[in-house]
Design a protein around this nucleic acid. Structure first.
Lengths: 349, 349
DNA sequence: CTGAAAGCGCTTACAG
DNA sequence: CTGAAAGCGCTTACAG
C-alpha cells in the first residue's frame, strides 16, 4: 500500500490564508449577500489554488442539506441505460450536471414498490437533490418523493400528470411532419405502425399523423390505417409488416412509432422483395444511431436527445435553488431527417 | 409548497428504542466485533422499522470516510453510456452496486487533464469509494487516484498495466472460436477486419484468430489476411468490404473485430449481391443487440456484458473493504452465438 | 466585512 | 454488553 495522500480541507486553506473557515466557505461559494473584501478574497483564492483545495461534496451536502447529486431512477425490471434512445438523454444529462457541479446517480425502484412502500434507495437515504424519471412512473411515487422536499422532473413520461415538471419532444408535430412529408411525395395510402398506444408519446405521434391526414383530405379509418404490433420490437414489426405487405392491396407508405419498428418493416420489405423507396416509403421516429445503418438509411423524425437530458437537469437545478419554473410542461421541437427510405409514391397501375 | 416530511434520524430511533445512537448504529450496521444482546437488537430493529428509518448515506459517508458511491469515469470527448456495448456493462454494474448498497455515479475527466492536472470531479471532491474506468485510460491517472486511497478497477482497458485490478473478456479465445467455427465449416480463406489495433482487446482477438489459423495449418500472411478499416465504424467497414469483395479472388469468410464492422460488411455484401452465407460467411464480435437485426442475423462472439460490470463493482466493493484480490487480471469466458451469417464454405469453382 | 460556534447525521475509539 | 463524546468537513445564522 502506498502512502495515502491526505485531502486538503477547508481548515488547511483557512490557515494558509490566515482567515476563518467561514470566510473560506463564503469566498468559495460566492455567497450572495455576503460581501467579502477584495484583498481577503484574493488571499483565500490563492491559498485554495496553492493547496489544490476541492471542497468535500459529501460534507457540503450534509451541512447544507442539499446533496450535490441528481438521480435518474428506473423500474428495476426495465432496461435502464442500455436503451438506444434514452442512453443519449443520459449523456446530455451528465454533461449538463457537471456544468452545474452536480453528479449524476443511478438508482432503481422495485417493481412492487406499491406493496412494500419503498422509495428508491437514493431518496430513502437522502443522497439526491432531485430525481428525474424517464418513461413510465406511478403518480403516487412522484408525490411521495416531492413530499420529502426532493423535486422531480419527468422525461417522456406517462401517465400524464398535472403540476409536475415534465419535458418531452413534440410528438404530435413529429407525427404531422412524417405524414406531411409523405403526402408531399404524393402518397395517400399511408399506414401507421405502433405499439403501446397508452404511452402519451406514442399517442401524440399517432394523433399528429392522423391530423395531417385529415388536413390533407384523406379520410382516416382506424381499421385501415392503424397497425398495432404485439410488442414494441423489431421482430414484432417485421412479422406484422410481412402480413401487411403480402396483401394484394398494400400501402405505399408506412410510418412507424419508432426506428426499431421501422427497421422491422424494412426487413420485411427486403424479404418480400418490395423495393424501398420505389415501391414502399418508410418513416421512423427517434433518429437512433441504428437508423443510419438500415438498408436503405431510414428517413426519420427526431428531437435533441441530449438536449432533453440537459434540460431535465437544468430544471432540477433550478428547482433545487427554488427558482420557480415558468411552465410545468416543456416541449422540445422535432425535425425530419430525410434519408433514403422515402420517395415519390409509385404510379398507380 | 406542500408540508415537507422530515426524515427520521438515528436520534429518533434511539429515543424510540430507549438506547443510545451508538447502539442503533451498531445494530443497523451489524458491526463485526460488536456484540449486542438479542433483546436490545430486537428493540432497535423494531423501532427502526416502525419509524421507517433509513440512515443518511451522506452522513454515514462523512463519518466513516467511506462514501457509499462507486463512480464510472470516462473521457469527456468519449461517448459514455450511449455505447452499444458498454451500456450493458453499466446496467450490470448498477444492479450489482445496489445489492451491496452502493450507488453508481458518473463522471468524466477533461481530455487535457494531463496539462491541467485535474482529477475527475468525483475523486477531487471525495464523492466516491472507488472508480471504474472503461476502455482507454492513462496510467498516471490511475496512480493519482490510487494515491488518494481510492481503489480503481479497469474494464477492457488499455494500455496494459500491471498491478492494477482489471477485468476483460477472453478476447484471444474469442478470436480462436470465430476462426475455428469457420474452419470447421470448411473455410480456408478467412480475412480479418479490424481497426484500432493498439487496443489490447482488438489485438487479443486478432492474435486468437491468427493462432487458430496456424493451428489448422493455414499459413498466416498479414498482407492477405488483415484488413484494417480507417475508422472503427459501420461505414468504414462497409467501404473496405466493397473494395475487398469486388476483387476477382475474394475471401469466403470474414471475421470482424466487432459487430458494427460486421454490419458494414453485410451491407457491402448485400449491395454487391454477394449472398450471405452461401457465398460469404461473416462473424462479428460482442453480440450487441443490433446483431440480431442484421440481414441475415449475425453469427458472433460474446461474453457476459452485464457480468463484466457486476464483477467490476464486486471487486471494488472488496477493495473498499480491504479484501485483497486474488488475481489482478480477471478474464471472463466467451462463447459463439451461431446465427445465420455463417455457413459451409462454397465449393471451389 | 469577518469570526466563533453550533449543527448537519452519522461512526468509532474509548470507558465503564 | 452499552453509552458518552469526539469528530468527519463543511454551512450558516448570529455577533460584533
Amino acid at each position: 500500500m502506498m502512502a495515502k495522500i491526505k485531502k486538503t480541507t477547508i481548515k488547511d486553506v483557512a490557515k494558509e490564508a490566515g482567515v476563518s473557515i467561514a470566510t473560506v466557505s463564503f469566498v468559495l461559494n460566492n455567497r450572495p449577500g455576503q460581501v467579502i473584501s477584495e484583498p481577503v478574497k484574493k488571499k483565500v483564492l490563492k491559498a485554495a489554488q496553492k493547496l489544490n483545495y476541492h471542497p468535500s461534496a459529501i460534507a457540503a451536502g450534509l451541512a447544507s442539506k442539499r446533496p450535490g447529486n441528481i438521480a435518474f431512477v428506473f423500474y428495476k425490471s426495465d432496461e435502464m441505460i442500455s436503451n438506444l434512445y434514452y442512453s443519449f438523454v443520459l449523456e446530455g444529462a451528465i454533461r449538463e450536471a457537471t456544468k452545474h457541479s452536480f453528479n449524476i446517480m443511478f438508482s432503481y425502484m422495485e417493481d412492487d414498490w406499491e406493496t412494500n412502500g419503498d422509495l428508491p434507495k437514493v431518496v430513502r437515504e437522502g443522497s439526491t437533490a432531485g430525481v428525474v424519471f424517464i418513461k413510465e412512473i406511478h403518480p403516487d411515487m412522484v408525490r411521495l418523493i416531492e413530499q420529502r422536499g426532493v423535486p422531480v422532473v419527468l422525461v417522456d413520461h406517462y401517465p400524464q400528470m398535472e403540476d409536475v415538471s415534465a419535458i418531452e419532444i413534440d410528438n404530435f408535430r413529429g407525427g404531422e411532419l412524417a405524414a406531411e412529408h409523405l403526402i408531399e411525395l404524393g402518397h395517400t395510402d399511408i399506414v401507421y405502425f405502433y405499439a403501446n398506444a397508452d404511452r402519451p408519446s406514442i399517442r401524440g405521434r399517432l394523433d399528429g399523423y392522423r391530423a395531417a391526414l385529415e388536413k390533407a383530405g384523406i379520410a382516416f379509418d382506424a381499421k385501415k390505417h392503424l397497425k398495432e404490433c404485439e410488442e414494441f420490437t423489431f421482430h414484432s414489426a417485421c412479422d406484422l409488416a410481412m402480413e401487411t405487405l403480402k396483401k394484394k392491396k398494400r400501402p405505399t407508405a408506412i410510418i412507424c412509432a419508432n426506428d426499431e419498428l421501422a427497421g422491422g418493416v424494412l426487413r420485411a420489405a427486403q424479404r418480400l422483395n418490395v423495393r424501398v423507396p420505389d415501391e414502399l416509403s418508410v418513416v421512423g421516429f427517434d433518429n437512433i444511431t441504428m437508423s443510419n445503418y438500415t438498408e436503405p438509411p431510414l428517413t426519420t423524425i427526431g428531437g435533441d436527445k441530449e438536449g432533453l437530458g440537459a434540460q431535465a437537469v437544468r430544471r432540477l437545478v433550478n428547482a433545487v435553488k427554488d427558482k420557480a419554473d415558468e411552465e410545468k410542461l416543456q416541449i422540445l421541437p422535432v425535425e425530419l431527417y430525410k434519408r433514403d427510405s422515402t420517395g415519390p409514391a409509385p404510379k398507380k397501375m
